[in-house]
């Protein structure tokens, strides 16, 4: 029987690789009887989904922006780069 610690590690690994048949079976059994690990598995899948969508949500208005100085510097460099090509 898997401990919760082992189950939590397998839950994470299942997001990174296919588990072996035995591991899948052991984990499934554990999640059936352990409410906390069942919740944990749910939450990790949710976190993965959130992470994948993070880039789109970085556009919010209060997020950091390029400073005017940085923009100007970058524009200069780009213009210089364009002149060379």
């Amino acid at each position: 029987m898997l401990s919760c610690k082992e189950a939590s590690q397998l839950v994470s690994q299942s997001l990174d690789r296919p588990l072996s048949f035995g591991q899948r079976l052991g984990l499934r059994l554990h999640l059936l009887i352990c409410k906390m690990c069942h919740q944990y598995a749910h939450q990790l899948r949710f976190l993965q989904r959130v992470a994948r969508h993070l880039p789109e949500h970085l556009d919010e208005s209060d997020a950091p922006r390029l400073s005017a100085a940085a923009k100007q510097r970058i524009r200069h460099t780009l213009d210089a780069g364009a002149d060379h090509s």
Partner: peptide, 29 residues
């Protein structure tokens, strides 16, 4: 700005993030 924010989340360093945006745009051009 979007590129900068992405770089900031990944690198946690504004100077470095600015450099990455610049390099990205140069490479893109």
């Amino acid at each position: 700005d979007a590129l900068y924010r992405y770089a900031m989340v990944r690198l946690r360093d504004s100077m470095l993030a600015e450099d990455m945006v610049q390099e990205t745009l140069l490479a893109a051009v």
